[in-house]
Simulated assay, not measured.
Amino acid sequence: MDAEELLNRYTAGERDFRSANLANVNLANCDLPDINLRRANLRQANLSGANLVGANLREAVLRGTHLAQAVLRLSNLIGADLTDANLQQADLSEAGIRSANLTRTQLFQANLKEANLSEANLDSAALREANLSESSLSRTKMLGCDLTGAVLDNANLTSALLNGAILENASMVDAVLSGATLEGADLRDVDLSRARLKGANLVNVNLSRANLRGANLSWSSLRGANLRGATLYRAKLNWSNLSGAILTEAVMINASLTYTNLRNADLSGAILPDGMTHE
């Protein structure tokens, strides 16, 4: 099916184009709200700037598809294959993207507010400055994902896999990362104030100058983590493992450190809780 045929049928009132072969079709800037493209083949298609509000793209093939600045608000992308797709500055707010494949997908400055990305694959995806506030990312794979400057306030990242991810300057206020794995991730200057990281794997994470004010890191592993200059005011670190961690010049006023393992940790210049000293 070519673009002209689809547009003529859509204009005539047809909405069901499930399983259609639309590979390489050019539908840039077209108005196609509520269209049903379930399991359609849209590989390498051009949908840049298209209006796809409420579209059904469940299990569709969108590999290498151009969707920059497309409006996909409230769309259904569950199980869709978006590998290598371009979604820069696209509006995916409140979209259902559960279990979708977004490997290496370009999502620079995309709006994913309140989107459901649970169990999706975002390995090596580019999400610089993306808005993921209030989104669901539970059990999502985000290995090596670039989230520099992204907004993840109130996002749910329970049991997410973020090994080697870049979260420098990201905002994660009130985010839930319980049971998440962030081994070797870059979280320099991140704002994790009041975040819940109970039982998280933060081994060898770079949290230098991070804001962890009021964060709950109980039962977490921070072995070898870099917390140089981090703010841990009123943070909960009970039963956590910080052996070998760098806490140079960290602010730990009123931090809770019950049964915290600080063996071989570097606390030089740190501002410690009342009654706590270091050699």
Rank of each mutant, 00 (worst) to 15 (best):
N226C: 08
L197I: 09
A210M: 01
K198T: 11
G214N: 05
L192Y: 10
S220N: 03
N201I: 12
S220W: 02
L217H: 01
D186W: 07
L197A: 09
R223D: 11
A195L: 12
L192S: 10
N201L: 11
D189Y: 15
L207Q: 06
S208L: 02
G199P: 06
S218I: 06
R213M: 10
A200S: 06
L212I: 02
L187C: 14
G214S: 05
N216P: 05
L187F: 14
W219G: 00
V203S: 09
V190L: 12
R188E: 13
S208R: 07
G224F: 01
R194K: 10
A200H: 03
D189M: 12
A215F: 00
N211K: 01
L207H: 08
N206K: 02
A215T: 00
A215H: 00
N206T: 02
N204P: 06
S218R: 06
S193I: 04
N204T: 15
G199V: 09
A195H: 12
N206Q: 02
G214R: 06
A225K: 00
L192M: 12
L217W: 01
R223H: 13
D189N: 15
L187V: 06
S193T: 09
L202D: 05
L192D: 06
R213V: 09
A185E: 05
G199F: 06
L217V: 01
D191C: 11
V190I: 14
S208E: 08
V203I: 10
D191R: 14
A195Y: 11
R209D: 14
